[in-house]
């Protein structure tokens, strides 16, 4: 049993990372109705700005702040594109736009950060908190998981309890109608993009030291993140939190499997599929039209 527990605990920090990004993906989807393939890339951009500044000798704290702002800025820029030209487009078109943007951003990011040249990623929090099941649980991974939980609760409360949250839900469901009752749609949408950029940038800064620190790898974290969001059916923050953690743990656990090593990469996919088919078993028909 312990032979599975150890890798499961080891996967916890990755799981927290997926959960944060997954919650952000749902937030974006629910509020501006975009499945955002560039989510992780936006965060990666902010993180690399921070790294560039610390590499040039700037103290950590202001560099982090500027990095977060840079993430927000990139988010707002992509949000600007989406709201200017695609506010009325279909979900497929919007997905295609962010997919295309991802290809471009990765190319730009690789060029600007020097391909696979590693950078010195400062640990925002260092050291290990405690040891459990033979695994050093670092403050970094604890913070990741805490942040994921906090973000989930905050998102839930924000959407359900605050006036702005209600306005934003109105905005995503009926942009035209929202405009008519006097909500400044574009400003709110850009605010969502900015906040998501800032949050993912900060999350990425915590995650990055324990991931492959190149632009492409960090940008492609969007795949497990979207998988986590999918477990939440792009609606439930809590389910996405659990989904993200689950994917991380499963990834950790399969690394301990000895059989079928070649097919390990498929296991997380199968887990997602099973969870989904079970949770969507009642969805016999498409939305009435």
């Amino acid at each position: 049993m312990n032979s599975l527990l150890t890798p499961a605990v080891a996967g916890l920090s990755a799981g927290g990372a997926y959960a944060i990004l997954g919650v952000c993906a749902i937030f974006t989807y629910r509020l501006v109705a975009v499945v955002n393939f560039t989510g992780a890339a936006i965060g990666a951009a902010g993180t690399f700005v921070m790294v560039a500044l610390t590499e040039h000798g700037m103290p950590l704290f202001p560099a982090v702040i500027i990095g977060i702002l840079a993430g927000a800025l990139v988010g707002v820029m992509i949000g600007g594109v989406m709201t200017k030209w695609f506010s009325g487009a279909s979900a497929t078109t919007k997905a295609a736009v962010t997919a295309a943007l991802l290809v471009g951003i990765i190319a730009l990011g690789l060029r600007l950060t020097g391909g696979q040249r590693p950078h010195l990623f400062p640990d925002l929090v260092s050291g290990s908190a405690f040891r459990f099941a033979g695994v050093e649980v670092t403050w970094g991974s604890l913070l990741t998981v805490t942040l994921a939980v906090g973000l989930t609760i905050a998102s839930d409360l924000f959407l359900a309890r605050t006036r702005t949250g209600l306005q934003m839900r109105a905005l995503s469901e009926r942009p035209m109608a929202a405009e008519l009752i006097g909500i400044r749609v574009r400003v709110l949408a850009l605010a969502v993009w900015g906040i998501m950029g800032a949050v993912t940038a900060f999350a990425m800064m915590i995650i990055a030291p324990l991931r492959s620190p190149d632009f492409m790898s960090l940008s492609l974290l969007v795949v497990p993140a979207l998988a986590a969001a999918l477990i939440g059916a792009f609606r439930s923050f809590r389910a996405a939190l659990l989904g993200g953690v689950l994917i991380g743990i499963v990834e950790g656990m399969v690394s301990a499997l000895e059989f079928g090593a070649r097919f390990r990469g498929v296991v997380p996919f199968l887990v997602i599929l099973i969870v989904l088919l079970w949770s969507q078993r009642g969805a016999r028909w498409d939305a009435a039209r």
Binding site: V35, A91, A95, L276, A283, R284
Partner: peptide
Amino acid sequence: RLRGINLA
């Protein structure tokens, strides 16, 4: 069972 973006 899955549609739209979920299927994607």
